[in-house]
Design a protein around this nucleic acid. Structure first.
Lengths: 203, 203
DNA sequence: CAGACATGTGACTGGGTGGTCACATAAGGA
DNA sequence: TCCTTATGTGACCACCCAGTCACATGTCTG
């Protein structure tokens, strides 16, 4: 969505703008982020920004797309071998955690995006539906191979994984100073709860 | 936290102010809510508001306290008979749902409060800890009576219930037009997932 | 009635925002 | 060289906000 003018910019200038925007959108959610601060940080005039992007929203969506492209790239490979359903889920959440560690600004942009429901409602809803279909597909395969419990409601199962994943991501922010190994262990324990259930097993 | 002046106000005027504030804080999260709109809606001057409350934050906390007091009242009784751990949890979430239905504005205020992390961080953290202790106490009792799996990590279990509960509450908003019976059923199914776990049981 | 005190008021301040536009500068072609 | 077109600029606009304060109005007391 950026204009041709933006795409023809020298790389250094493009990157200055992107870096400034990433910093600001990581610092504050969309509505609190300040275009004025972004252009100041990037060292360009406000009018110039409006020659590169139609408005604040378009700039935001551009940055968001970039961030998500990076994350998709980072998570590529997690789903390649999905023979073990529960191992795949653990790989997914562990790798998401490592992404947050490696790209903390990108990670903050994503959490702000999910928090901020008012705008982007449709965008969030449609990407949620996509995730749901992927998950349910995997779950059905796991049921066929006897790994997963066939008695549970699939939508409910997705709902559970989705909400826990969302909250895990949010928590990664707060606990950023402590030990990484401890975090990964906690992720595993949370997923163990979802796998085993709270009711005692008499197996 | 309101001043004596506010407490001495005729009941009708107090209620007009409270009603206006509730409506605005339900409409928008704290930082987007407009004091100007509240005083306009309540039919008082801005200066008057500052004789009743020190500032916007104090007004907000007053409303929030009121809302939570109502919710506590509403949920009273859910934990009275906690002999069946899983039944108690279902009662809790079902009743929370009914609260959201009965007091939709209060419900929105609460979800906005949880969404808005920037301010009120400490408040949220401490109330979360309180909830955690309650939950873990119940869980330990359930483990002693053999209802609950002793192998799982208790903090992880709380984390799971907390995040799922949070997301359930958020979802109640969106789905408000459809059938109530269907919602309650979905809540049960979600809790069944947490109870049974996704892994197949060979019992 | 007069004076003291409590309460009510809304124009105003200072600060922020996203977005615009007349103008300045640079680039490129004839 | 000159003219056209593309790009850069920042003062400015309209709007919103929380909070203040000099003043007006009401109320109670001596």
């Amino acid at each position: 969505m950026p204009t041709a003018t933006f795409r023809n910019l020298p790389r250094a200038k493009q990157e200055a703008i992107i870096t400034a925007a990433v910093a600001e959108f990581a610092r504050s959610p969309y509505d609190q982020a300040s275009l004025t601060k972004i252009v100041a940080q990037a060292g360009i005039a406000k009018g110039s920004m409006y020659q590169y992007f139609e408005n604040k929203r378009e700039l935001y969506l551009y940055i968001l797309n970039m961030v998500y492209a990076e994350k998709r790239q980072y998570l590529k490979g997690v789903f390649e071998d999905d023979s073990d359903f529960f191992a795949t889920l653990k790989r997914y959440y562990r790798r998401s955690y490592l992404f947050a560690k490696e790209y903390p600004l990108y990670h903050r942009i994503i959490t702000h995006y999910w928090d901020y429901c008012a705008e982007f409602e449709e965008e969030i809803k449609s990407s949620r539906e996509l995730k749901a279909n992927e998950f349910i597909g995997m779950l059905e395969a796991a049921i066929r191979t006897g790994q997963a419990n066939s008695g549970i409601n699939k939508d409910a199962a997705f709902f559970v994984y989705h909400s826990v994943g969302k909250e895990l991501i949010e928590n990664f922010l707060e606990l950023s100073q402590t030990d990484q190994q401890q975090h990964l262990q906690f992720i595993d324990q949370v997923l163990d709860v979802l796998e085993s259930g709270l009711r005692a097993r008499k197996e």
